[in-house]
Design a protein around this nucleic acid. Structure first.
Lengths: 339, 339
DNA sequence: CTGAAAGCGCTTACAG
DNA sequence: CTGAAAGCGCTTACAG
């Protein structure tokens, strides 16, 4: 329980018989000091246990070594993105401040303000809606969008190729002979929903199958694990009440998928015998479930890594990177025989 | 894309015709300004969109509004803890910097240094081992332990009552007639492992059943989801090779549980017919699995909340809170008939 | 290659 | 109730 205050540059300078400017230089590898001086200073630093006061540095430089991450919630998908971000931040010597918007635009914008006040080097944002009302974006403190796009501003964005991924998943179901395919979507106001729907529609169109809006259900705008699972559950219940219910269901996120499966269970519908099913986002549980589910898997970790890359690129060369990472369809046992 | 620099206290002061000290006072609710002045200053603040530079404040006060969280990895248990922490930080106007130690002590200590350099108000730590080699702990920047305890330092700690929880789980198995109960533990070097083992041993002792070390398997010190699942898998495989294999298995964390179930699947052992099973940590998947698994559930969210509480308490009154939250045994269908 | 000095934007005694 | 001023610990031109 040592209470004495942290040593400063002055302490190091005094001990090493140099000026604080010199200490600062060796600290920042400015290569303006003689080899001998560098060695001596470094020795003193280690000896007295000096480490830089980042607040002071941030104040002077107008920028901290912090990166902000704002996601709607901490579900496993966003957590894996965080993993990727943390991994890559290591390289740039950045640390990550996390915050959740809980799908509230007001809260999201407050969080941006808070992060800006912390002088963060940049913000990675999974926006709550398809427009961004936030004007204070500079080259120095850029916002990089992740997962979800926005219509009214040009920003770097790292996302998944939702259209293609959902097109392929739907195609697989079509190839297996299904004509009535239920689609369960999340909240209508975000780009991923629009794009996933788009992929589905394109696949049906390619087969000249009419879109039946009754087969497209929204899991609701609800926040929270339980509410989303309920959304998936309700979606299936609604579909199965139709005069002509679907013979296959495609759930476009993990929680929706769990809710949908719960409903199917209750209805005693066997997968894949009575109902074909494709889910979203892989999870270790799927290795031991029966049947093993065919799913669309997102490269979340990679998305996180690339977001930090894009952030750095934007800061260093003002380049606006827009990347659409491929979604992987992992065929297992839940949608019939054809592989 | 507004590039002009952020307004400062001076800008506000000039615009409101007061000194910067006054602006600072109203900003900090120091109640030393007349009502009229407060109103005018607040109006100017809103008008020019001022928000405080936290780096400057942190430098002056020697403390930022940041809280550090160091966990071994971002598995769902720790993510739920993060949720609780974030929730509670809202109240104290703190933000959370997250970092993962990846079960490396060296990395853990580096991260503590980095966080201290950020002048964090405190650190919540799930330590990688049962001793803490870190000396720089003050009342101002305390470390609060979460989930895992440490032997050599007295610090606030918020943990689960692992002994009791595992005692009860084992007792349930014993009551159902099992005498040979396999126990799958995580890494031996951490307090949770020791305590979970202790609960198991106590339960067997209460029944005068000899401990068979062959029935106690460690999932290994491995980091990463896959390695831990493999650990659980291997543990079961080892146990089932015994001349007298267990008739019930208790897996003491979620990943270990998944691995164990995978092994049991492969061995075509039906739960609960051929094998009783109790797992750890609840998950929505369990609502739709067959059978529904009996598990020990941890109050992770609550632990996160209480950790922030304990941190605040320690800072304000130097009180060292030690809390052991009850574990909940959720009886479902995986360990026989008796409820 | 090194040092003296200004200044980043705040908070906080202190004086009035 | 309000203001002038010092100082938190750095970085960075600038001078030597």
């Amino acid at each position: 329980m040592i209470q004495k205050k942290r040593p400063t540059l002055y302490d190091v300078a005094k001990e090493a018989n140099v000026s604080i400017a010199t200490v600062s230089n060796v600290l920042n590898n400015k290569a303006e000091a003689s080899e001998e001086t560098v060695k001596r200073v470094n020795q003193v630093i280690k000896q007295i246990g000096y480490s830089r006061n980042e607040s002071a540095r941030s104040l002077k430089r107008g920028e901290s070594k912090l990166i902000g991450l704002i996601v709607p919630d901490n579900n496993p998908f966003f957590t894996e993105i965080l993993d990727g971000i943390q991994h890559e931040c290591e390289y740039y010597d950045w640390q990550v401040v996390v915050a959740t918007s809980e799908e509230s635009e007001k809260r999201q914008n407050q969080l941006i303000d808070l992060l800006l006040a912390q002088q963060v080097s940049g913000i990675i944002l999974a926006p709550v809606s398809d427009t961004l009302s936030y004007p204070k974006i500079s080259k120095k403190t850029p916002i990089v969008l992740i997962d979800r796009e926005v219509e009214n501003v040009t920003l770097p964005v790292i996302k998944a190729d939702n259209v293609d991924g959902c097109y392929k998943a739907t195609k697989t179901l079509l190839r297996n002979g299904h004509k009535r395919i239920g689609l369960i979507l999340a909240s209508p106001g975000i780009s991923t929903t629009v794009q996933r729907r788009h992929g589905y529609v394109e696949a049906l169109n390619s087969q000249n199958i009419q879109i039946d809006e009754d087969l497209i259900q929204f899991g609701g705008n609800y926040t929270g694990t339980k509410a989303q699972i309920d959304g998936g559950y309700q979606a299936v219940m609604n579909m199965m009440k139709l005069t002509s219910p679907p013979t296959a269901i495609f759930a476009t996120n993990h929680l929706l998928m769990i809710g949908a499966l719960k409903a199917l269970n209750e209805l005693k519908l066997n997968i894949p015998k009575d109902m074909s099913f494709i889910g979203f986002d892989d999870h270790p549980w799927q290795e031991i479930s029966t049947p093993k589910f065919t799913i669309v898997s997102q490269p979340a970790f990679e998305m996180g890594k690339q977001a930090i890359h894009a952030l750095h690129k934007y800061k260093s060369s003002n380049e606006t990177i827009k990347t659409s990472l491929p979604l992987q369809l992992i065929i297992r046992e839940s949608c019939g025989t054809e592989k």
